[in-house]
Design a protein around this nucleic acid. Structure first.
Length: 245
DNA sequence: GCGGTTGTTCCCAT
DNA sequence: CATGGGAACAACCG
């Protein structure tokens, strides 16, 4: 479910609930007092990377799908939802296996919109500045850092590095400036391709490195390795992805 | 039944 | 105190 593009799809699908008033709200754990939402009107839906935001006049509900989060629109599953919303016109919106958080401060204070890779406010310059602050930073960790590349997940990381021909264990500080820019551009580009391919139902079939057996460029085996401080699996080609160190 | 996973946070040992 | 490992959580697939 997660990674930024999937959250944009969710945002699109729930537009029908914008401006609707919550008639009934339930939460199946203690993370949120659902009664706060009753009789409140949804004024907007926003997102920041993997965060999905339901905006009410005086507060925002943050939903993070983590690995396994799901949702149902105008239907529900047998299990009670983590967050269930029923509206005054009897439509419903349900979220499962997600993390909830109430945000009461202004959103502009809570979020750096320039860090959201799929936002109109995305700033490559700022990302470069953040990365250069750590001389030991590996590219695989940089791309997974939500403060730098909010919305990038393990799929986008691996596909972007493959497309940019950069080995995941390369040092950010060892990349020539042009190469660093290329990496960022590939991450942005693939994020939007991810969105289109997911909507078309062709996401998996277009993967070039992620969970692949061999490199589509030269047919040597794709390496699968636990990489970086983030210890997330990288899939890469040792032959065509250069190690900068 | 088990292992793996599009993610993150927290606890504890070092 | 910074770092890192492991656990915890959660759901589905093969």
């Amino acid at each position: 479910m997660p990674e930024g593009p999937s959250i944009l799809i969710l945002k699109e699908l729930v537009q029908q609930f914008k401006h609707k008033t919550v008639a009934e709200a339930t939460c199946n754990n203690k993370s949120l007092d659902a009664s706060l939402l009753v009789d409140k009107r949804i004024i907007d839906f926003k997102s920041w990377g993997k965060h999905f935001l339901i905006c009410f006049p005086k507060f925002t509900v943050r939903i993070h799908m983590m690995m396994f989060g799901t949702y149902r629109i105008n239907t529900h599953t047998a299990k009670p939802p983590r967050l269930g919303l029923r509206f005054t016109d009897d439509t419903e919106l349900n979220f499962y296996a997600c993390q909830l958080q109430l945000i009461t401060e202004p959103l502009d204070k809570a979020y750096d919109w320039q860090a959201d890779i799929m936002s109109d406010h995305w700033s490559s310059r700022k990302a470069i500045k953040k990365m250069k602050a750590d001389p030991d930073l590996l590219v695989c960790d940089a791309l997974m850092d939500q403060h730098i590349f909010s919305g990038v997940g393990n799929i986008i990381k691996n596909e972007a590095l493959f497309n940019a021909r950069i080995h995941p264990e390369s040092l950010v500080s060892a990349l020539p400036p042009k190469k660093l820019t290329e990496m960022i551009n590939e991450a942005v580009k693939y994020s939007f391709q991810f969105l289109e391919q997911k909507q078309a139902g062709t996401l998996k079939k277009n993967w070039k490195a992620y969970h692949k057996k061999e490199c589509p460029r030269n047919h040597v085996p794709i390496i699968r390795k636990d990489t970086g401080k983030s210890h997330r699996t990288s899939f890469y080609c040792e032959v065509c992805q250069k190690l900068y160190k």
